[in-house]
Amino acid sequence: MSELRSMWGNTRMVVLSAISAALYAAVLVPFKVVPLIPGVTELRPANAIPVVCSFLFGPAAAWGAAIGNMIGDFFGGVGPADIFGFFANIVYGYVPYKVWQVLARGQEPVIRSPATAVKYTVACLLASTFCADIVGWGENLLALRPFLMLGNAIVFNNMLAAMLLSPFLLAAIYPRVKAGHLLYEDVMPEQQGAAAWTAPLGLILLVVGVFGAWTAGNLISTGYWTPHALPASMTQPPYDRAIGIVVTPLVAVAVLGLGLM
């Protein structure tokens, strides 16, 4: 994950992160008026942009997603939970690129075969669910909204955009950006070493952490699962303490996995 820091030393990457953010926000803001769950989240076709940018610009897209989402939040008001939204969007813009590096290094992220489609779906599903985990966990930790609500709405929203819009955008844009030498590997070739030997282990930890956190968060916030090892005072609605104790380590496992990739 050091590239998330080192990219700030490259002016082109700084500009690309600003452009990714502005493109994301430019599509996000007009759709603020189309609520998916009124007062909670809106339909977000803009969520296709971070996925596309992730495959093109890697870490610049991660920061771009976070900044773009922050601009969108500024339009409709910010709150303490938006700090979690910031980090969730970093993950949403970073995971597709990292997972692709492990599953299909050197291949173009344009869907031309069933195998590419499967790898693309896995990358997007991991990114979408990890993003949902962080927001759902954070909001439930602050006892603002139950995990179930945002944890699922975000996966739906992200996957809808990533599966229905991003592939078409990638097919049209990727070859042009490649020809213009603006892909991450062209802008920062010094960062393109061999894949870390820990990458497969990182991917396994990422999968375990992401889906473990999502499952546990859903079960606890709905009251279907009560962790009996915890004192009764911690397993009462709004389940903030139970979520804090059970889901936090799983989110940490996912972050560790991402770090090892």
Binding site: V15, S17, A18, I19, A21, A22, A26, G64, M70
Partner: peptide, 11 residues
């Protein structure tokens, strides 16, 4: 900070 300001201006 610059990236944030630039992004705001570009939207």
């Amino acid at each position: 900070g610059f990236a944030i300001t630039l992004a705001f201006r570009l939207v």
